[in-house]
Nucleic acid binder design. Structure first.
Length: 312
DNA sequence: ACTAGCCCCTGGGAGC
DNA sequence: TGCTCCCAGGGGCTAG
């Protein structure tokens, strides 16, 4: 699933690709009027005004905040895209076709006409399309329809409810051990894995990278934040930076079919040490433990039963 | 402050 | 081959 490294890869590439391109039209197959929250293109009324705001505008820059891709336009608005579980943004040449499947709510769908790396013609999950002034398209593929697309005035972005409450960025140079500890201790009795994954505490860390960081630091995911000794907190701090950086270096993690905007998979999922390795022997040097799975706050956590210590 | 549980959603895998 | 059932989960939400 897209976490910080995947969103970072996508946003960085889009910044280069989209710069000075114009949006000529917009399309979506999302249609859930009853969906909670009106500020989402799944709501047809919202999509209408959204479409009006962005059609004709030009991209100024693309960047990331937390797990959100932010696309700043030249007309004072910024498009906010959260890809959630199965979303990815793809750039290429697509065409609209009539769906043969009459059961589908929308009788239109999009498929690629591009050859090369982006052989995406079987992609039946394109839910949102921005047609661009170069004749190409930026499309959102979103199998489970969890993604969220919305818009804010650029000047109000930092105080908006979508972006305003997001915690500090763990890969910023200003993110040091003291800040890390100060943030975690805001939830003193929380389970460390849950606290790490809370976007209001620290931005961008999800299930995969929290498992991997805790594995590296040798801390059990159910440890209470205020029981973790300071030298272990220091190890965790370094581990968080390390796994996120490694994720970016590998082009992201494609466990959930993540692809970058040119359709290329990442490789981090070939290097998991804990995540989804249930039952396998621990690969830490000299450790004879086994990877176990536990439910924490409705999410599955994976850890070595030997070298990851429970502080509680 | 924290927890449990539900919801959004659909493909993939297991079991029969 | 095809059915049923369970699982994956970010984050927003409510209720306790």
């Amino acid at each position: 699933m897209p976490e910080l490294p995947e969103v970072h890869t996508t946003a960085t590439m889009l910044n280069k690709i989209l710069k000075s391109l114009r949006i000529t039209s917009v399309w979506t197959s999302y249609n859930s009027p009853s969906h909670k929250g009106k500020d989402n293109i799944k709501n047809p009324e919202f999509f209408k005004s959204f479409s009006k705001k962005i059609t004709g505008a030009e991209f100024k820059k693309g960047y990331r905040r937390g797990k959100n891709v932010l696309l700043e336009l030249d007309n004072g608005y910024t498009v906010i895209i959260h890809m959630k579980m199965t979303g990815h943004l793809l750039y290429g040449k697509y065409k609209k076709v009539k769906s043969k499947n009459l059961k589908e709510r929308s009788k239109e769908k999009w498929e690629t006409v591009e050859e090369g790396p982006l052989k995406d013609s079987k992609n039946q999950f394109i839910r949102f399309v921005m047609s661009l002034s170069d004749g190409r398209h930026l499309v959102l593929s979103d199998m489970r329809k969890f993604a969220k697309v919305t818009i804010e005035k650029t000047t109000e972005l930092e105080t908006s409810k979508h972006i305003g409450s997001i915690g500090p960025e763990p890969l910023e140079t200003t993110f040091n051990l003291k800040l890390f500890t100060d943030r975690l201790i805001l939830r003193p009795r929380g389970k460390v894995k849950q606290v790490l994954m809370n976007p209001e505490i620290i931005a961008g860390i999800g299930n995969i990278y929290s498992d991997e960081a805790l594995f590296l630091a040798g801390i059990h995911p159910e440890s209470r934040v205020n029981k973790i000794p300071s030298e272990k907190m220091s190890e965790l701090f370094k581990a968080v930076k390390k796994v996120l950086t490694k994720g970016i270096d590998f082009g992201g993690d494609s466990t959930s079919d993540y692809r970058n905007p040119l359709g290329v998979h990442g490789n981090f999922h070939h290097h998991h040490q804990a995540y989804r390795n249930t039952g396998k022997p621990c690969i830490k040097k000299g450790c004879s433990g086994t990877i176990r799975k536990v439910k924490i706050g409705g999410r599955s956590g994976h850890f070595c039963d030997k070298h990851q210590i429970l502080y509680s």
